[in-house]
């Protein structure tokens, strides 16, 4: 048991605990915040493992961007503040989830622990340093890296178009109310509180039209 081991156990415990809380808490927003903690401490775990760059990117992208996006999404979908019983699936499904999750963990652990049994990494002479990673990305791995840029571009275009189309349609519905093609428009107006949601969202021109 080295010092690094002890540190890792500590960080890992935080990660696991916050992950557990993020999937069990009844507060919708808390779940996202616990995820934030979990991913952040995972970045710490990367640091302990000697992968500074990965840890940094984890902080930047995951904590800085993804979780923030998740929080945004929760707010845009009018997530309730405070405990909410409705966020969990029926009990039988949760039991199934627990069984399957346990099975996954058991399966992975039973295979990985023997695999890494006794394996150690000497982090004082790290095999991969940040310059090496940089060189690898722009050298060996330049092809998938370029593809990744295409993927990001396409994802942005797609996400933009998808969110925009509905905004347009909502707008179109409002403009000519007697348009016969959109029965759903009337549906959504029928049930009371959801109407409020729709109008609330669509009345924010900034959200939808942002490109």
């Amino acid at each position: 048991m080295t010092t690094r081991d002890i540190v890792f156990v500590a960080v890992g415990a935080v990660t696991a605990l916050s992950a557990l809380l993020s999937v069990t808490t009844k507060h919708v927003v808390h779940a996202a915040l616990w995820l934030l903690v979990s991913l952040g401490s995972l970045a710490g775990a990367y640091l302990v493992l000697g992968q500074e760059l990965v840890g940094l990117v984890q902080l930047l992208v995951y904590v800085g961007a993804i979780v923030v996006l998740v929080l945004f999404a929760l707010m845009l979908t009018r997530a309730p503040i405070g405990p909410h019983a409705e966020i969990d699936t029926p009990r039988w499904q949760r039991v199934a989830g627990a069984v399957l999750g346990g099975a996954t963990t058991a399966l992975l652990a039973s295979l990985l622990l023997p695999l890494f049994a006794g394996a150690t990494a000497d982090l004082d002479r790290p095999s991969t340093t940040t310059p090496q990673i940089a060189q690898a990305i722009f050298g060996t791995w330049v092809w998938p890296f370029e593809l990744l840029s295409v993927l990001l571009l396409v994802a942005l275009v797609g996400a933009f178009a998808v969110s925009r189309i509905v905004l347009q349609r909502d707008g179109a519905d409002r403009h000519d109310a007697d348009h016969p093609d959109h029965p759903d428009h009337h549906d959504s107006h029928d049930d009371g509180d959801r109407t409020a949601a729709t109008t609330a969202v669509t009345s924010e021109p900034g959200t939808g039209r942002v490109g």
Binding site: W143, L151, G158, A161, I165, V166
Partner: peptide, 21 residues
């Protein structure tokens, strides 16, 4: 490459399905 390409083949399709609105 395999992961990125597979995702590149999948993600746009999801958006395409949603696109008809």
């Amino acid at each position: 490459t395999w992961l990125v390409a597979l995702e590149l083949a999948t993600l746009p399709v999801i958006a395409l399905v949603a696109l008809s609105g």
